[in-house]
Computed example of a mutant assay.
Amino acid sequence: MDARHRRSRAKLADAVLRLASERPIDEVTASEIAAAAGVNRSTFYAHAASPLALLESVLRDELDALRDRYLASIPDSSVPRAAAAEAVTAVTLAVLENIESHAAIYERGLLADAGGGHRGETSLRPMLAAHFEESSRQLLAQHALFPSDEEEAADPLLAAMVGPFVANGSVGAIAAWLAQPEPRDAEAFLRSYRRLVPPWFPLAPPLSAAGSRKGSCTSCSSYPALHIRRARDGRGAAAR
């Protein structure tokens, strides 16, 4: 990607996030996004086929960057599960913070509409699930999910089921968290999430009353509770 393409991409990303925070993405046109970004329609379509496709791509890029930052530090099977648990806990908190910074967008894209269903054509659930499924595949490849390589190799169906199982459950859990009143507490999410995920899923121990994490993982206390509030840059404006 050359410098000009990157600049156009950055302008389009800012524009689609701003407009999608103000109203549903299915009410936003390609022409509006292009005008807000200061580019022409042909430039828009060089980056995305539709406003929703652009929005999904921008959000997915942000989430993937967080995964790369935290999970790439996990070497292969020589690393103790405690290290993987720290990385997964840290990236989970970072993902929640990112989602909260785009709260209006994710509320529209994840929560039920007034009729009790989901807007299938503008739902962000498939995008978010695809991100988590890829994260699960990466953890599996890094031998960070199961106690031993033998267990993974012995049941290929189990390995194939891990990604969809973790991904779709995590999306549902995040949607339930987003439906809670502000301020939303990421540590509260983790407390409940730990009770839902199976024992083989790596998460750091919970915080003790003193603010450090319980258990033998001495460096886990580097991930404090995040009492996340919506960003004040306009992207987190409530969708009401």
Rank of each mutant, 00 (worst) to 15 (best):
T92K: 09
T43K: 02
A10D: 13
V28H: 06
R137Y: 01
D185F: 02
R9I: 04
E182I: 10
E56H: 04
A20C: 04
H102C: 07
L124I: 08
A34H: 07
L71F: 05
A179C: 04
E32H: 10
L71E: 05
V95E: 13
S42E: 10
S21I: 05
L71A: 01
R230S: 09
A141C: 06
A179V: 09
L66T: 01
E121N: 11
D68K: 12
M127G: 06
V58Y: 00
R191D: 11
D185L: 05
G38S: 07
L17F: 00
S77Y: 09
E187Y: 02
Y70G: 01
F201E: 06
A160V: 09
L52F: 09
A239R: 08
V95I: 15
N98K: 13
L96D: 00
H47T: 05
Q142T: 09
E22D: 12
A160D: 12
D14R: 13
H131A: 13
T92Q: 15
M127F: 02
L111H: 00
A239G: 08
L111T: 06
F201Q: 07
L19M: 03
F44D: 00
L71K: 04
G234Q: 03
P206A: 05
A129Q: 04
D155S: 07
A83T: 15
L158T: 12
A129K: 00
H118Q: 15
H5F: 14
E22N: 09
W177Y: 09
G211N: 02
E134K: 12
V197C: 11
R18S: 14
A144V: 10
P126A: 01
A94F: 04
R235I: 08
L157T: 10
A15R: 06
A209S: 11
L54Y: 02
G211D: 03
A153L: 12
A13W: 05
H131V: 14
V79C: 13
K11Y: 08
P24C: 13
S57D: 14
N168S: 10
P206Q: 01
A49S: 14
E32C: 12
